[in-house]
Amino acid sequence: TFGGDSTVYHITNETSSKGKTRSSEEWVNMNNVYINGRDTWYKADLEKLTGHSYADLTDAIMNNHLITNPSSDLIKAYKLKRNKNTYTLTAKTIDKALMKKTAEPIFDTTPQSTGQAKVFKQMQKFGKYKSMTVKAVVKNNKLATFNIFVNMKLGKMMTVKVGQSYGNFGSHDFLKVPTNATNAKNLPTTDNKKKK
């Protein structure tokens, strides 16, 4: 979720494996990232920690081509349902080029560390794009929600699902980084150099 001036991002990452789900929470305000680690908040410079900047994150979210300039293939794939003043557009596609173009900015701006970014690059390189679903809900001639999910397969056993969910368009419920996060400790760094 995002909102405010300057834009504040609240990001929840979830990883599911063998029926267990782990999640982590972070807030991003300008180039500061606040990460909740085991009920303790830590603060770090977003670009130094992750390799991507606040501007990269803002661009990936605000300039989503699926919303602002959808391809003719996606437009053709949409199916429309209407209920009074609510229109729901849903699409499922297996267009690999479109899936890759959609997943790239998500992979580039989601990592919480440079190590995780390397893992995501490997996923992009070796993963097989299987399908993508898109759902847009328009109420009273305004976009209300927009969801994108790209499904990939890694090897024989692992599946990956990346996506973005948009909501509360046009609302004035602006986000603010909570005080318990802004009072965070600096994220500890480790020195891996061996002392001689």
Rank of each mutant, 00 (worst) to 15 (best):
F2V: 00
D5A: 13
S6A: 12
T7K: 12
T7I: 15
V8Q: 03
V8R: 04
I11N: 10
I11V: 15
T12Q: 11
T12Y: 04
T15Y: 10
K18F: 14
K18G: 08
K20Q: 11
R22C: 02
R22V: 12
E26C: 14
W27E: 00
N29C: 09
N32Q: 14
Y34M: 03
N36Y: 02
G37T: 05
G37K: 09
R38D: 15
Y42F: 15
A44E: 06
D45E: 08
L46E: 01
L46T: 03
L46K: 02
L46N: 02
E47C: 00
K48M: 09
L49G: 01
L49A: 15
G51W: 01
H52T: 07
S53Y: 07
S53T: 14
A55I: 07
D56F: 01
D56M: 03
L57T: 05
D59F: 04
D59S: 13
A60W: 05
I61H: 03
M62P: 00
N63M: 06
N63V: 03
N64R: 06
N64V: 01
H65V: 09
H65N: 11
I67V: 15
N69G: 12
N69R: 11
P70Q: 09
S72H: 09
D73E: 15
I75N: 10
I75P: 00
K76A: 15
K76G: 05
A77C: 08
A77E: 05
Y78A: 09
R82T: 10
N83P: 00
K84D: 14
N85G: 09
Y87D: 02
T88E: 06
T88S: 09
T90L: 04
K92V: 07
K92P: 00
T93M: 13
I94T: 13
D95K: 11
D95R: 05
K100H: 11
K101V: 04
E104I: 01
I106R: 03
I106L: 10
I106A: 08
T109M: 04
P111N: 04
Q112G: 14
S113I: 04
G115P: 00
Q116D: 09
A117C: 02
K118N: 11
V119P: 00
V119L: 13
V119N: 08
F120T: 02
K121M: 06
M123G: 03
Q124M: 15
F126Y: 14
G127A: 14
G127H: 07
K128N: 12
Y129V: 06
K135A: 08
A136S: 12
V137Q: 05
K139H: 10
N140L: 07
N141H: 10
K142E: 14
A144Y: 09
T145G: 05
F146E: 07
N147Y: 06
N147W: 01
V150K: 00
V150I: 12
V150A: 01
V150R: 00
M152P: 06
L154G: 10
G155Y: 10
K156V: 05
M157H: 13
M158C: 07
T159R: 08
V160H: 07
K161P: 02
V162N: 01
G163A: 07
Q164S: 11
Y166N: 03
G167C: 07
F169V: 12
G170Y: 09
H172P: 00
H172E: 13
P178C: 09
T179W: 01
A184F: 10
A184D: 06
N186S: 15
L187F: 14
T189C: 02
K194S: 08
K194C: 03
K195G: 07
K196P: 01
